[in-house]
Amino acid sequence: MTFDWQYIVNVLPHYQTALWITVKLASIGILFAVLVGITCSVIQYFKIKMLTKIVKVYLEIARNTPLLIQLFFLYYGLPKVGITLSEELCGIIGLTFLGGGYMAEVFRAGFEAVSKSQIETGKAIGLSNLQLMRYVIIPQAFSYSVPGFGANCIFLIKETSIFSGIAILELTNTTKNLMGIFYKTNEALFMLVIGYLIILLPLILFLTWLERRVRHAEFGN
């Protein structure tokens, strides 16, 4: 079976558009997931009354329900009660909801890894909780959180393939559509793999470099 390179040239604009959509939605979703994760981990770390219970319920739902179910609820369920969201907004909210649960666990573990003696020292010199977070806890927790944070970023980018369930034309859905039209399975899957490599390979290299830098800053080797 020959490989049709002319077909790849012809459909390349479709993959360029799909690649941009995938990167855009993943980037926005990860950004908001990080913000949600940090907020939840801070609430858990300081054991803020009432909010801690709400966070626990959210984390259980976020981590124990598939992204596809969450997207179906947003895209098909909410219109039943008069709330209609665009496909891309549903994708961003779903990725944020799912990712926030996983990011919260990573950051919480990072906070708890900070030495208690340093926190007590900070309190002894009169630092407030906000100052402790800014000057003592967050800088150190960041170095502990980098590996898990990187793994979650890669996981969430790959989860964008689920967006095909609500007709977002990201890489996977574009590939499925082109396969159905032209029956060029090998070529379409080849372009799908290349598309994800373009996104993930630079990210993996950057995260590897970042992890080495923070480890060097902490341990000196």
Score class of each variant (00 low, 15 high):
204 I>E: 08
193 V>P: 14
181 I>G: 03
193 V>R: 02
159 E>G: 08
173 N>H: 12
165 G>L: 02
150 G>E: 06
156 L>K: 12
210 L>F: 07
181 I>N: 05
151 A>S: 15
196 Y>I: 08
147 P>S: 03
158 K>M: 07
151 A>F: 00
152 N>R: 10
188 A>I: 01
152 N>G: 10
209 W>M: 14
194 I>E: 03
168 I>Y: 05
150 G>C: 04
203 L>F: 05
197 L>A: 03
164 S>R: 12
151 A>E: 01
168 I>G: 10
198 I>H: 07
167 A>R: 14
210 L>M: 11
197 L>T: 05
151 A>D: 10
187 E>V: 11
153 C>N: 01
196 Y>K: 14
157 I>S: 05
200 L>Y: 01
189 L>C: 07
158 K>Y: 03
164 S>A: 11
172 T>L: 11
185 T>H: 04
177 N>S: 14
148 G>S: 09
153 C>L: 07
194 I>H: 04
162 I>V: 15
204 I>L: 05
195 G>Y: 03
174 T>D: 04
153 C>S: 04
161 S>F: 00
167 A>P: 08
159 E>H: 10
196 Y>L: 11
165 G>K: 06
169 L>V: 10
189 L>Y: 10
174 T>W: 00
176 K>N: 13
184 K>W: 00
196 Y>H: 12
159 E>A: 15
183 Y>P: 13
203 L>K: 13
180 G>H: 06
195 G>C: 06
205 L>G: 01
204 I>C: 02
159 E>C: 13
175 T>I: 07
156 L>V: 05
193 V>N: 07
157 I>L: 06
147 P>I: 03
158 K>R: 15
147 P>V: 08
209 W>D: 12
160 T>Y: 00
205 L>N: 10
184 K>R: 15
204 I>D: 06
168 I>S: 08
180 G>Y: 01
206 F>A: 14
156 L>Q: 11
189 L>I: 15
200 L>N: 13
190 F>E: 01
150 G>N: 06
194 I>T: 13
195 G>S: 12
195 G>H: 08
208 T>Q: 15
202 P>Q: 08
203 L>V: 09
175 T>V: 07
188 A>F: 00
156 L>F: 04
175 T>G: 11
152 N>L: 08
178 L>A: 03
209 W>Y: 15
147 P>N: 11
175 T>R: 14
154 I>V: 15
194 I>D: 05
192 L>G: 06
198 I>P: 08
181 I>W: 01
184 K>F: 00
164 S>M: 07
200 L>S: 10
159 E>F: 00
161 S>P: 11
164 S>W: 01
194 I>N: 04
172 T>D: 02
